[in-house]
Design a protein around this nucleic acid. Structure first.
Lengths: 356, 356
DNA sequence: AACAGTTTTGCATTCGTATGCAATATGGGT
DNA sequence: ACCCATATTGCATACGAATGCAAAACTGTT
């Protein structure tokens, strides 16, 4: 009796023999809802435990044509927003009894190998986040009949599902906030110019400023990258006519910008310069930064993502669905306060302009 | 001809028929090193492209008994060190043509379901990082004949491979540094008390201090958690006899401690209080913090991890291997400088005590 | 005890690919 | 043109579990 957990080459047939039943019975024991009597089930369970048997998910996938694996494509994890998303995705997917196959750490160019792998593993669904190759990849996958959800991104042709927040309204809200704070010269540190998220935030910001009569905006592009954001800040903020209000396309960059402003250029924030970010991610909340930021409701976004996937998987229908959630402008200390519009909602300070 | 990438139900047999060859030929075309003539290979390739065929990794796994999947267990990603590890792991594993199945976002108690899933998917290897259930899980997996590597952790009985840095020496180095800085009262903010990493760092710290005649250390436990670290800092630093030198078990907590010290308690760092962390992770480098920190050579650690896995997978031998790497004490601005021992090495300031 | 109705069971087949083996094709040397 | 060595090919089977179908075992009723 060599007992213990053996090299796990235990098959359902072995268990069947041991329990004195057929292989089918074993299969049915481990298939919820299958027709099996309590008696045989017990016998099978006993034998299974003795042998240390676990159903082989690979073999099961082969016949059910379901891998119960969701692929998540996330090119980089530098921005803490994405690890947070990942963690929550892991949680919810586990609850639905799905596994998470992660694609990360690749250069954004090599789309093809990734697509190949997605196809080879017959993943049941795909989440595309934090990658610039969304457009091409997503269409390919959708064409292949696999449910895809773009996370925090959209494409022009909206043939593929997406979960986003109202980025345009968010940008506009930031503008309103900064205008209400009495600022005069406005700047924008841009994310990836090709990303819908960045375009929308900037468009809203521009609109909001324009309505208040401000049409001139100083812009630097930093591609959601920390180092580039530092460089952009150095450039923009060392000019004579530097802005006194700065919208940075996400908190990951905002934090870098703030460091440069304060410690390299000696600017007081928010006295000399107001900074507003986006995402309301961890470091933004740390007291050294206290970034005023448009929040993105991460949990609800992930929830929506998973629910779209589950729906499409179970129905087999791949109808593009677009969930658009609301964020709030969380007020902290990185930007001057307007005289009105800042209210307290269960412990958090929010900016809600009076008008609407 | 309905062309295009169809619902990907394309099988090797279909390709075979189309190309006018046998299914075996198709299989061999996609099996590197198999015996196949250039001519038929070309025919197969053409047919495959037409039909949009990709080998089914599931079916392949079933017969080769290799999933080419590595499971990575990482309970939480809050500490940026781990997302960084994840990204690098993703990179290296992809290079070796392996996929990464991520287990995250679960409570550290429910070990069993995870083990079950690992077994069900017949993963080829397992990396355990950032989880307290290493001990039980690892032994189970190892017993099941799957290569396991503990990342940044070890267990007493070293039956399972691990990759770590010299935590004990690191703790000692921190002590030497703080002593050399002329500090008199020492504190320690502890990580998870059950983790080997924490134990070793603390042990080394204690040793180092004892050698200089300091035997009293103020300790608070914060379990590698940010909120708990804040609470610990509040408690320890608001005492009359608060330390003037504080070693925090990792940077993730050190940053929180620094925020509390500076902004809640009004302490000047490093004038009133020196803080040293561990990991040398992103935020530690940001100028708002500038945490002096023992570095862990992340890339080399991940490299070692992958190399151990690949070795064990290809050899079939599961002999526990322990790779222990060196870190450096990276000197920044969160701690008083000693008069000697701080040197510049390719752009970074390092503390290297004179004696050895 | 016989019956119909309902559960439970086992048989046989299926999923898509890899591979040992025997059969066939190819190529080189004469 | 012939023969042998080598390279390629196809056949048949295996991997481990799920499932339609028919047989068998129960259940309760009369």
């Amino acid at each position: 009796m060599d007992s213990g957990v053996k090299k796990s080459g235990v098959t359902s047939s072995q268990v069947a023999r041991r329990a004195g039943v057929s292989q089918s019975a074993v299969s049915r024991t481990f298939t919820p809802g299958a027709s099996i009597s309590p008696k045989t089930r017990a016998k099978v369970m006993a034998a299974a435990k003795e042998l240390g048997y676990r159903p082989n998910a690979i073999a099961r996938s082969l016949i059910t044509n379901r891998s119960r694996i969701i692929a998540v494509v996330m090119a980089y994890l530098e921005n803490l927003f994405y690890p947070d998303v990942l963690e929550e995705l892991g949680r919810l997917l586990a609850k639905e009894n799905y596994r998470l196959l992660l694609f990360t750490g690749f250069m954004d160019r090599d789309s093809d190998p990734i697509f190949d792998q997605l196809m080879q593993y017959r993943v049941d669904g795909i989440v595309l986040a934090s990658t610039s190759l969304s457009s091409e990849l997503s269409e390919e996958c959708a064409a292949a009949g696999i449910p895809v959800v773009l996370f925090n991104r959209t494409t022009e042709r909206d043939a593929v599902s997406s979960v986003t927040t109202r980025n345009r309204e968010g940008g506009r809200r930031v503008a309103e906030f900064l205008v209400a704070g009495g600022h005069k010269k406005f700047g924008y540190i841009s994310g990836l110019e090709s990303s819908s998220t960045n375009r929308d935030r900037f468009a809203g910001y521009k609109e909001g400023l324009a309505e208040a009569g401000h049409t001139e905006i100083m812009v630097e592009v930093a591609n959601y990258d920390r180092a580039e954001a530092e460089a952009a800040a150095r450039k923009m903020l060392s000019r004579e006519d530097r802005p006194d209000a700065l919208f940075v396309a996400n908190d990951h960059m905002a934090v870098a910008v703030m460091d440069v402003a304060r410690h390299e250029l000696g600017l007081a924030v928010p006295e000399d310069l107001s900074i507003v970010g986006y995402d309301d991610v961890g470091p933004a909340r740390w007291t050294s930064y206290g970034i005023t930021s448009m929040s993105q409701p991460l949990k609800r976004m992930v929830e929506a993502t998973v629910s779209i996937l589950m729906e499409q998987i179970s129905s087999g229908e791949i109808e593009a669905e677009h969930r658009i959630l609301n964020g709030e402008l969380v007020v902290r200390t990185s930007a001057r306060l307007p005289k009105t519009g800042v209210i307290d909602v269960d412990g958090r300070r929010i900016f809600k302009p009076a008008k609407s």
